[in-house]
Amino acid sequence: NMVVASDTPYLWFNAAEATFLRAEYELRWGSEETARSLYEAAVRLSFEERGASGADAYLAQTDVKPAPYTDPVGNYSATAQSDIGIPWANGAENFERNLERIIVQKWIAIFPLGVEAWSEHRRTGYPKLLPVPTDKSGGSVNVEQGARRLPYPVEEYQQNNANLQAAIQTLGAEQQNGDRSGDVMGTRVWWDCKPYNK
């Protein structure tokens, strides 16, 4: 396990993440040319922050795509969930593909911030993750989409039940088209509203 002391450095927010956020903004509401420039700058910053070289060669790789996965123990295998590459693709018709590029590279850049990476996935649907091999949720989670939230802790039921029940009703009212409902891990939160990626 990691040994963490009060003076241990910890990644909270890095320059690459800020630049990926700016790239996403530009892609959605600004200039595609600026979005591309920021995307490439963010990848370079991510390399720099990790002490790695070769960012320009990485950005130019046209033959790199997600690969199928086979568990080394042999219990699970899955096809690649996406065929997204690294280089930017110009044109408005590539909006969703370029959004996926931004988020996949951001996912890599913010390691090891797992909760933040999970939030990015829930917010955008990217990266397209492998489905779990076995549903151990009892049906409360769509295994292709994964857990969408954490259930409320037992203490809330014990010490704040009236407000908790109101919150659960609000969660239920926000669901769309067969989404899971109630205080379960498959219920989507208010900002998790983008249609699922296919």
Rank of each mutant, 00 (worst) to 15 (best):
E32G: 03
D63H: 13
V104N: 13
R101A: 09
E24T: 00
E32T: 03
E17M: 05
A57S: 13
F95S: 07
D183I: 07
W29G: 07
K198F: 12
T8W: 00
Y10R: 14
A117E: 10
K128R: 15
K136A: 12
P72S: 10
E49G: 13
A109D: 08
N163S: 11
G138E: 03
E174R: 06
Q159I: 01
F47R: 09
A35R: 05
G85L: 02
P195E: 12
E174V: 00
Q81H: 01
A42N: 08
F95G: 08
R148L: 01
W29P: 02
P112Y: 05
A35D: 04
A117Y: 01
A5C: 06
P112N: 14
S6D: 09
A147R: 07
I168P: 06
W118I: 05
V184E: 08
A173H: 07
Y152H: 06
P195C: 07
V43G: 14
G85H: 07
G182T: 14
D7S: 09
N160P: 00
E120V: 04
R22E: 10
E93K: 06
R148F: 03
R148N: 06
I103K: 05
K194A: 14
G74A: 08
N163E: 11
R148T: 11
P68A: 12
N177H: 02
E96R: 06
A52H: 08
R122Y: 02
A80D: 05
T34Q: 09
R123G: 05
A147M: 06
Q165N: 06
S119A: 12
T34S: 10
N1C: 02
F95L: 13
Q158I: 02
M2F: 02
N163V: 05
L21Q: 11
N98G: 13
Q158W: 01
Y39G: 04
